[in-house]
């Protein structure tokens, strides 16, 4: 029969598995705790008004984070404005329209895009896209907010497409049949029935894509030119900009551990953590309702 040693082994393994599962919560808390530990003290060292200023010159004790915050927002929203229509249209094409052979080509390619390291895309952006942007605009530099947004759009496309595809996939076939049965064309059915039914999933897709874009670091740092200026005018699209992520990446290597500047960078990290946390929280709602599974376990 099942011997006692086996029972003990099993007990130990099950206990370990439980601990591993639960430890994921611990990790999130740990991450937040360490960000707070390193970043929070800065708020006692520097007056809050300093952070809300428009100038980020850490060497002169100016920690105005607004240009960075707006820089991130500006690039992210521009990227999503490009990626949303492209991504949803591609998802619709792949799910609803494309012949099998086209699907077989598109899906692996999109997966490949998801796998390309951001530093490689950044490199490509620098060496290939930026010079062309400069030429076309006749601007002094091709490293602009727009260049960054373009690269970011492509980086968030795999996420947007795959989540949107799942959402379309979840729309019952009967909806499509019903649309066609009342004499609508496939095109009408897609836009009046299927896409609206998948709406919440598509919103999730966009949220997740946005989370990906706002947190992206290397590519953005390599192609946006990194000037900490307020992107408030229309021409900001075609001028350099600097994001929160790029600021951390570019400056953390040079600061003294424990200095005000070091803590200020961690404070930006806290902000990034909180922002992405809420973005994902919103996206997660849809994920949770999908997860349910009844019956035997």
């Amino acid at each position: 029969m099942h011997d006692t040693r086996g029972r003990w082994m099993e007990f130990a393994i099950e206990a370990l598995i439980r601990v591993l599962g639960i430890s994921t919560i611990g990790i999130v808390l740990l991450i937040f705790a360490f960000l707070l530990r390193e970043g929070l003290p800065v708020f006692f060292q520097v007056p809050l008004t300093n952070f809300l200023d428009v100038r980020w010159y850490p060497t002169f004790g100016m920690f105005g984070a607004l240009p960075l915050l707006l820089g991130s927002a500006f690039v992210t929203f521009t990227a999503i404005a490009i990626a949303l229509p492209l991504g949803v249209a591609t998802a619709v094409f792949v799910r609803e329209v494309a012949p099998n052979w086209a699907r077989e080509i598109l899906k692996p390619l999109i997966e490949v895009l998801a796998g390309i390291p951001s530093v490689v895309l950044g490199f490509f952006g620098m060496t290939f896209i930026a010079p062309r942007v400069r030429e076309i605009l006749g601007a002094p530099t091709g490293l602009t907010a727009f260049t960054g947004a373009l690269v970011l759009a492509y980086m968030s496309l795999p996420t947007i497409i795959s989540v949107a595809e799942d959402a379309l996939d979840a729309v019952p076939k009967s909806y499509r049949d019903a649309g066609l049965a009342i004499g609508a064309t496939q095109w009408q059915t897609i836009w009046r029935v299927v896409v609206p039914a998948a709406r919440s999933g598509i919103v999730t897709a966009v949220m997740l894509g946005m989370g990906r874009a706002i947190g992206e670091t290397m590519a953005v740092m390599m192609v946006t030119g990194n000037a900490a200026r307020m992107p408030l005018t229309l021409d900001s699209f075609f001028r350099p900009v600097r994001t929160m992520t790029a600021t951390i990446a570019a400056e953390m290597g040079e600061v003294a551990k424990g200095s005000v500047h070091y803590r200020a960078l961690f404070a930006i990290g806290i902000l990034l953590f909180v922002v992405t946390f809420f973005i994902n929280l919103t996206a997660a709602r849809a994920i949770f309702t999908k997860r349910r599974r009844g019956g035997l376990r």
């Binding site: 599962g21 639960i22 994921t24 919560i25 990790i27 999130v28 740990l30 991450i31 360490f34 960000l35 530990r37 390193e38 997740l208 989370g211 990906r212 706002i214 947190g215 992206e216 670091t217 992520t245 951390i248 990446a249 953390m252 960078l265 961690f266 990290g269 990034l272 953590f273 992405t276 946390f277 973005i279 994902n280 929280l281 996206a283 997660a284 994920i287 949770f288 997860r291």
Partner: peptide, 22 residues
């Protein structure tokens, strides 16, 4: 736990870098 995982997946890689440093 699920919430934690979703959020871990969404944390920017540079923030992981900060965490690792800290």
């Amino acid at each position: 736990i699920r919430l934690a995982i979703v959020n871990l997946a969404g944390i920017p890689s540079i923030v992981y870098g900060l965490f690792g440093l800290g």
